[in-house]
């Protein structure tokens, strides 16, 4: 490290302040990839908080990206609600049977206490270990599934659409319950050492619901929830589109938005300018088969479109790089950011 090189925390904070750091910060949001570090199954990996923390530290040291990611997998939150996860060898677990099978059950639903859940406790333990290792040098990104998107696992997306469109009073009731849980969960992670919270809200994306419905639903939930989270929040649509919502998202209190690979990064950056930083938007699905040339091309392209003036963090578009993406690709990605992403940007 030379004298002018920033630490990841300073680099990320500089970029979030819409200033140019020493280089473009980049987040490799690695989850199941950690199991490969220790040659264990995905199930075993996610049952060992110490191993997860070690894997995150090891991967950050190898690739030199600008965060540690304490996220396990989305359905872990469902385990706290009494649900279960279905494990795969080569992918993040899925939520099992819905915990709400009839809409009337919402009336008697109670949010679990975050501190009484053993599984959420594992995430908090990993977060504490990451904090011990990283101190103030590397940001630790915690994750909550938004109260608005949580029902896609609580009841299944089809039933959730039925609820939103046909039972608005019950929908509101469910949001009140979910908000208590999500805010408590976010703040518990911050207390354990998370620097910022990634608010996963794919149902709010225009891929899933129309903007006018978002304004009546997910937007209000986000604004209420984010205002109660005691750290900066970045909103992530998990590959969903966000461009038509930029003005609304900026009003939710989020400091950053992750855009889809299906959207124009330059357009999203320009629309967000000065209000929210932008993350994204490398295509993790295609990344499985990228050659060295492809990686360089895509990284350069993203930097060209969004890096100028700061306010940009390069990452994948889903919030999770598939386990099928090789170490070589990740290493090339890292080298490409370091090669092309130094400020002032000179790509010629």
């Amino acid at each position: 490290m030379n004298n002018d090189e920033m630490l990841p925390m300073e680099r990320v904070l500089t970029s979030l302040s819409f200033k140019e750091a020493d280089r473009v910060p980049f987040f490799l949001l690695l989850t199941t990839q950690g199991a490969r570090e220790f040659n264990v199954s995905v199930r075993e990996y996610f049952s060992r908080p110490e191993m997860l923390a070690q894997a995150q530290i090891r991967m950050q040291q190898r690739y030199g990206h600008d965060c540690l990611y304490s996220f396990y997998y989305a359905s872990l939150e469902m385990e706290a609600w009494g649900g279960e996860s279905i494990f795969f060898d080569d992918a993040p677990p899925n939520a099992g049977k819905p915990v709400i099978s009839e809409l009337e059950e919402i009336c008697s639903l109670e949010a679990p206490d975050v501190y009484e859940s053993e599984r959420l406790g594992d995430v908090l333990r990993s977060t504490e270990l990451l904090k011990e290792a990283a101190g103030e040098d590397i940001p630790i990104i915690g994750v909550v599934i938004s109260p608005f998107s949580l029902p896609s696992m609580q009841m299944g997306l089809g039933s959730y659409f039925d609820l939103i469109y046909e039972e608005p009073a019950l929908f509101e009731e469910l949001m009140v319950i979910n908000e208590e849980f999500s805010v408590q969960w976010a703040n518990a992670q911050i207390e354990a050492g998370a620097t910022a919270i990634c608010y996963f809200d794919p149902v709010s994306s225009t891929t899933i619901i129309p903007p006018e419905l978002y304004r009546k639903t997910g937007f209000k939930v986000a604004r209420r929830s984010i205002s109660r989270i005691n750290a900066p929040v970045a909103t992530h649509m998990a590959s969903g589109r966000c461009m038509p919502l930029i003005d609304d998202l900026a009003e939710t209190g989020t400091v950053a938005i992750c855009t889809s690979a299906l959207e124009d990064l330059e357009e999203v950056k320009s629309a967000s300018k000065g209000r929210m930083a932008v993350l994204g938007n490398l295509n993790g699905i295609e990344m499985r088969r990228w050659s060295t040339k492809d990686v360089e091309h895509n990284v350069r392209n993203a930097i060209e479109k969004a890096a100028e003036g700061g306010g940009y963090i390069l990452s994948d578009n889903h919030g999770e790089i598939p386990s099928q993406v090789s170490r070589d690709v990740l290493m090339t990605l890292s080298e490409s950011v370091k090669k092309w992403g130094n400020y002032p940007i000179r790509l010629a």
């Binding site: 089809g158 659409f161 225009t206 891929t207 619901i209 129309p210 419905l213 299906l262």
Partner: peptide, 11 residues
């Protein structure tokens, strides 16, 4: 074309 959302297609 991305002009309508999944929820609308579903309904």
């Amino acid at each position: 074309d991305g002009d309508i959302a999944l929820s609308q297609e579903y309904m």
